[in-house]
Amino acid sequence: MGCTRFSVMGGVRFSDKKRIVDFISKGTGESFMSVLEGFYQELKNEWAETGNDIDNFEQNGPKIIIILDNASIHKRQDILEIIKKKMPNLILEFLPEYSPDYNLAELVWHSAKEFISNRLFKSIEELEALVNKLLNEGDLIVNWGRSIKNKGNAINAI
């Protein structure tokens, strides 16, 4: 059986620890943009479900700060310009370089990797289904008070 790769792009909402995860075949600026567009639409829908007019989201909706690592796909200037125009409520902030300890998504991913490591999967679809169940359906229990050590640094995610 050959080795198949896929990427997982995701995040954690700080306020309620909601996990947002998407599976992509390639980590590109276009796939990053596509995931952000889906996330933005979901936020607009959540806002509308509370009785607000979805057409007024850009003017009256919340500003959403998204904290990103420094992956090159997150920093493509052409993509950043499109995001600024199409999704004005998003504010993109970047973590300091080489600081995955500050990224809540890393805590979630670390817990997921512990759960799925050393298992054999019959197909990439089986692995993807398990990761989806863990991350999107809430089956993964994350110890938010746990320390992750990386390159001698540690923080507690609360």
Rank of each mutant, 00 (worst) to 15 (best):
K86R: 15
R76N: 08
L104Y: 11
Q77A: 11
N156G: 05
L43H: 06
R19T: 07
E49A: 15
Y102E: 00
A129D: 11
A48Y: 00
M33P: 01
L107N: 13
N56V: 02
E125H: 09
A154C: 12
N52T: 10
E97C: 07
D69T: 08
Y98S: 12
Y40F: 05
K63L: 06
P96A: 07
S123R: 08
K44D: 03
L127P: 03
F23H: 04
D22C: 07
N118P: 00
K113Y: 01
V131G: 00
S15E: 15
Y98R: 13
P62A: 09
D139N: 15
E37V: 03
E42F: 06
V142I: 15
N52D: 09
N52E: 09
A112S: 12
S123G: 10
E137G: 03
S99K: 06
I158P: 03
F39G: 04
G2W: 13
S99F: 03
L127E: 06
Y98K: 08
R13V: 09
F94S: 03
R146M: 13
I158R: 10
V21Q: 08
D139P: 00
L68Q: 02
I54K: 07
T50H: 05
S99E: 02
I141D: 05
E126R: 03
N132C: 10
N45F: 07
G61L: 06
E37L: 06
S34I: 00
H74I: 05
F23A: 03
L90N: 00
L36P: 04
I79K: 14
I124Y: 02
W47G: 09
I67M: 09
G10P: 10
G61Y: 04
G27T: 05
K149W: 08
S99I: 06
P96L: 07
P96M: 11
S99H: 08
L127N: 04
E81H: 11
Y102W: 12
N143D: 15
L140G: 08
S111L: 04
E93N: 05
I116W: 03
M87P: 07
N136I: 03
S72P: 04
A154D: 09
F23V: 13
I79D: 08
F14Y: 13
K84D: 08
R146W: 11
V142Y: 09
D139W: 08
S34V: 01
L107F: 03
D69H: 03
F57E: 01
K122S: 13
I91V: 14
N52W: 01
K133E: 15
R76F: 04
E114C: 07
I141P: 00
I148S: 06
H74C: 01
N70R: 08
I83M: 04
I73G: 09
D53H: 12
N156V: 13
I124K: 12
L127A: 11
F94I: 08
A157Y: 07
I24Q: 06
V21W: 02
L36Y: 01
A129V: 00
V108E: 11
R19A: 02
